[in-house]
Design a protein around this nucleic acid. Structure first.
Length: 303
DNA sequence: GGCAGTCAAGTACGC
DNA sequence: GCGTACTTGACTGCC
């Protein structure tokens, strides 16, 4: 078990997801922004190594407009060397890496233009991980998509689309249950049909389920991750008091996290804390888990 | 320098 | 039908 947090770090004073408006696109601007983002990513990874936080989600904004027609700058060539250096650092320190394209990426849309843009965006994500030289345990996590007034037809479209994807994308793609439309059970059904691994989001599951308890889902979810995929990734969060159902907590709820560790027993996975204060809660989680035999690195271990 | 309005992209939902 | 929430920050133009 590794513990981590997504995309940004709130204490080291840089952001790895600087961007700019489409209207102000220029190759120079792109180059400068990617340079800045990569430098920050490096700093975050160093910070994480020292903190013992070995699971990290890389922001989709590393290369702004990467999949947009406006972007003709050969960022792959320009930054290939830097990316492979970062990848080496990642492999050397046994980090686990994920990426999570945002809500515009939909494989089951009935609209062909949406599908095309989505595949372009997935190609960018896969390319980014490939350039770092990461193996297929580095994943791109995606939700199943929309319902479009017909859930079974929409599931069917997902299967069809998934089968048509390039292997460079397919070998990294995993599906995550969402809080409203597609439950873990729906995702496991897609696994049965396509072989795609299922990323369990415990918080989404608490909001969208058909009565299954987390401990009962661990084995079927585990089964969907093959050896080449690595151990499962799990997203963890809890409800922010006083906000709409589904709002991510601002700080880790210690009791809730401890009971999550307890109810998952000896099942091994890497866990990502989707909590708003990012590395602060992740560090707390690491301390809370210090006696858990599943942990790869304990707090205070030399980095 | 500070502020408020706005930002590539899709979908579901409430009014 | 239209505006808004997702996730949330941070870019941008204006004062």
């Amino acid at each position: 078990m590794r513990i981590g947090y997504p995309c940004i770090n709130r204490s080291i004073g840089c952001t790895p997801s600087s961007t700019f408006r489409l209207a102000s696109y220029s190759p120079e601007r792109l180059k400068a922004t990617v340079e800045k983002n990569l430098t920050c990513l490096r700093n975050i990874l160093r910070f994480n190594r020292e903190a013992g936080l070995l699971f990290f989600r890389i922001s989709s904004d590393m290369v702004p407009f990467a999949s947009h027609p406006v972007c003709t700058f050969p960022w792959q060539e320009r930054f290939g060397k830097t990316l492979s250096e970062i990848g080496l650092f990642i492999r050397k320190n046994r980090f686990r890496i994920s990426m999570h394209p945002d809500q515009f990426v939909l494989l089951n849309s009935p609209r062909e233009d949406v599908i095309e843009r989505s595949i372009d965006e997935l190609r960018y994500h896969a390319e980014f991980l490939d350039l770092m030289g990461l193996d297929t345990t580095a994943k791109i996590q995606l939700h199943v998509g929309g319902i479009y007034n017909d859930k079974s037809a929409s599931l069917e479209r997902f299967v069809t689309r998934y089968d048509l994807l390039d292997d460079s994308i397919r070998r990294r793609l995993v599906i995550e249950n969402d809080e409203k439309l597609y439950s873990v059970t729906d995702c496991l059904g897609l696994y049965e049909r396509t072989g795609i691994a299922v990323l369990l989001d415990t918080f989404h599951h608490s909001l969208n389920n058909t009565g299954e308890h987390i401990p009962d889902l661990l084995a079927p979810v585990r089964k969907s991750w093959k050896e080449k995929d690595g151990i499962p990734m799990v997203d963890y969060s809890s409800q922010q008091a006083g906000k709409r159902a589904g709002a991510h907590a601002g700080h880790i709820n210690k009791e809730d996290f401890l009971s999550f560790l307890a109810e998952t027993g000896t099942a091994d996975f890497d866990v990502m804390l989707e909590i708003k204060d990012k590395e602060a809660s992740a560090k707390t989680a690491l301390v809370l888990a210090r006696d858990d035999p599943r942990l790869v690195v304990r707090p205070g271990d030399p980095g």
